[in-house]
Design a protein around this nucleic acid. Sequence first.
RNA 1: GCAGGGAUACCCGAGCUGGUCAAAGGGGCCGGACUUAAGCUCCGGUGCUAAUCGCUUCGUGGGUUCAAAUCCCACUCCCUGCACCA
Length: 969
Amino acid sequence: MHLRCTCMRGNGMKEYQPASIEPKWQVAWNENSVFDSDVDENKPKFYCLEMFPYPSGKMHMGHVRNYSIGDSMARFRRLAGYNVLYPMGYDSFGLPAENAARKIGGHPHDVTWSNIESIRTDLNRMGFSYDWRRELATSNSTYYHWNQWIFLKFYEMGLVVRRTAPTNWCDSCDTVLANEQVKNNRCWRCADEVRQKYFPSWWLKMTNYADELLDELDNIEFPENVKAMQRNWIGRSHGADICFSVIESDEIIKVFTTRPDTIFGVTFVTLAPEHTLCETLVTGTEYEADYRELADECARMSEFDRINMLKEKKGVFLGRYATNPLTGKELPIYAGNFVVGSYGTGAVMAVPGHDQRDHDFAKKYDIQIVQVLSEEEGKEPKVTGRAFEGLGWMVNSGQPRFDGLYGEEAKSAIIEELKSKGMGGGTTQYRLKDWLLSRQRFWGTPIPFIHCNECGMIPVPENDLPIELPLEVVFTEGESGNPLASHEGFVNTNCPKCGSPAKRETDTMDTFYDSSWYFLRFTDAQNQSAPFNKSKADYWMENGVDLYIGGIEHAVMHLLYARFFTKALRDAGLNDVSEPFSRLVCQGMVNAPTPYCTECNVEHHVDLDGQQCPLCDNKLGSRSAKMSKSLGNTVSPEIMIEKYGADTVRLFILFGANPEAGMEWSDSAIDSNFKQMNSIYGALIQAIEIAEDPSLKSNSSGEKWLLARARLNSKNWAEYMTNVSLRDGVMLSHFEMLSDWQWAQRRGEISCDGAMQFLKIWVPMLYPTTPHLAEEIWELMGNNLMLAQTNMDMDSEKDDGDRIILSREEYLRKVIDRARSVRELAERHTEGELSKVIIQTAQEWKINLATSAISMLQDGFDFKEGGNKFLHTQPCFQNEDIRAEVMQYWRSIVIGQKKRRGRIYTWGMRENDLISGELEEVSFLKENSQFIADALGVPIVDVYQAGDGEDIAGKARNSIPLEPGIAWQ
RNA sequence: GCAGGGAUACCCGAGCUGGUCAAAGGGGCCGGACUUAAGCUCCGGUGCUAAUCGCUUCGUGGGUUCAAAUCCCACUCCCUGCACCA
């Protein structure tokens, strides 16, 4: 496949050859270390980061998209004079490498390393501008050493706990999982069902930070849906703990409720089946058998279809009663399958009048339903057959001082009452759990603890770190379990405290631990004596990573862990910053067409393209779906780079959709982007040829316009880029700028100076997204310093005269457009060939009226009130021949018709300038009559002010300022 | 059920701090120029009408306004996440 533009326009045009340009500049950048950056207090910093890749194979299109966005932003910020930190690394611990090693009989280290090599090669071929000195891989002991060090710090801070508790166990992955890693009761990685298992595990007390994690969301720029997911996940709810004492027993049932205001409507109490009190109450009674049945069913729950389980509310009476602390009323105690043991206190007070679940339950088991809130102030509650769950006015409390209280007031009153009786109080519950950190697998950071029979669990002394993973381990297929546990050399050690023989902890850390602070390590990646130097971290991390780009799939997991970590490390005194990422951009999916059956709503492998659905025999259609190996609809970046070059792939990716939107892979679209690159290249070469010819000295209005346009585009472009609106930016840099150049070419000669000025504006705009092409042209322009080393002033104010130049040209284009739009009709109404265009500009009196009206409007004149009066004083109004026209015109500029407002309101500043003297329409059009004639393909263009010549087709009447009457003959 | 985001012309997609919006840009399609021809490239067209007017259109229905794709209300459908969370 050759990277050759087969079209040859102009003379001596060079070909666009990315295959030679791209490696050339990649080498040049590399040799000059232009992307290395260090702390520099004199420059504003910009930390641009992408979620680093998990090296599971080659680079895929998702990576290409992610990093093309980041690289453009990094390059743009460098160009704008920022000190940019833009690093790359590999999240290289984890199960897939271990499984792969098991399959091929090697060591995960080797598998991981060869994948890293491959990805690094691909990254370089795309021309991404990383500071490679900072490259890191989390599976290197130089990195995980500090994982362990931090873990010990957390231990000292009391953030690490080891406890035996119910955990989520995945059989297929052979390990426990954190709460965040379980989706719909399935493992996030392998989708196997998760079951509960009692297990001694290591936890990080993330819940200590629940409030800060939640509240700080308001101050960071994350997409709304990510914030919503995190809020949801943390799940803070304010409410009350209320104690119900069990009758004929010392036991107390503590419940959590968000609705203490409904306490007078409690008619029973429900415990989670796994609640310890159930056993105590029921053992040895006639109710025991029923209870056991329910409890067993719930314990097996994960094996059942979740949907079925959700439908049926079940419970059993436990044979005992509790008392309502405020009324003393006796309430039956039930165990119910819908009460979650791990949330709140694992017990709920049931208010069937005001909670639909309790209502259903009460109906089913024939329990009393009491309404204690009214929807309307001062009225009795309505009987509806459903629970009223909204806030309401308290009634039927039996204690008059509560009746009539509403909402929050009612809640606080109850809470106060409970407090005073010592039976409860206000409290806050979270859905967020502590982070279950330990994994029973090999390929992760060993947890630096030692089990000693004498001394118990002892942290490894800091000086003994890192505890390295042994390399002499062989993985074989079909063998499960953690090879660390059976590795004598690893496991056996001595107690650091008493010296007696002891065993090492063989659990390793969740790989999300690794990625929870890598952005801090990047600020000082080579540090051998600490995770990172504080002042370096504080410099680069001030206000957090400025732009963090990655997939939405980490909305809860990685992004929450990293936020927690940054706060915990801050409290450990390692850094000042509290929020790791100040702005998050989640790039959309890269989709591609895949066969799809509308009947079955199933996507199929591309091998079935054009065939019948294997499930229902219908003919398969096509639909867009996320690129995936299983559907086979992937496109290899390598092949595309080889075919079109990295710059075209980048252009396609960035132009295809704005970063957050999903995008569609399309062979024809990338092809047309390649054409675009060729056109741009052709235009650039042409511009350089002009720039090199000093005999070209024209100073045409086309040239002035081109430069004014370029200044405007460049300014807008910088704004778009700053906002990460890359698609809009690319639209200007790679599309508008080219078509402006082409328009200017048609408008007249460009001088050598003009061409050079244009290039100086355009080429830097091309640089962030298609850097190789830009560098190549920049060099041809005679620059010694590479663009990669160049800073640009991005806030250059545009020339004041630009506005006029641009609006004059816009006027010209509008006139031509209008002429075109009436041409077809004119043809129908005219016999023979059209040979002439007659343009009649507005009469002088129209211009005068418009000018007056504009300035009167600026002075706040009320046209409805005094418009006619003013008109009557005007000289043109005195002429009876045109009085009707004058009135009609006046109305159209100061009042307007139906949907269209009067022109004086719709004319902008530009138009006002033109009308009030910046544009002599007749002379301007006359100057450009040859161009207009060419554009319209007509030999003669006649221009005069209405009245100065014959009124062709009655157009004089239609003419208004800036909208001349146009007729064809 | 709760939360977040959507629905715009043949398709993708911008606009959505109300008027300059028949609605950017791209793709597709149609026509023209160039070419022996196809391709490439360039120019023009692509709601209906119409010598520049006008009419209808931005998920459905209603409302506010002199004026609504844009603001408000209700509804329908789609995507995403969480979910017997008390």
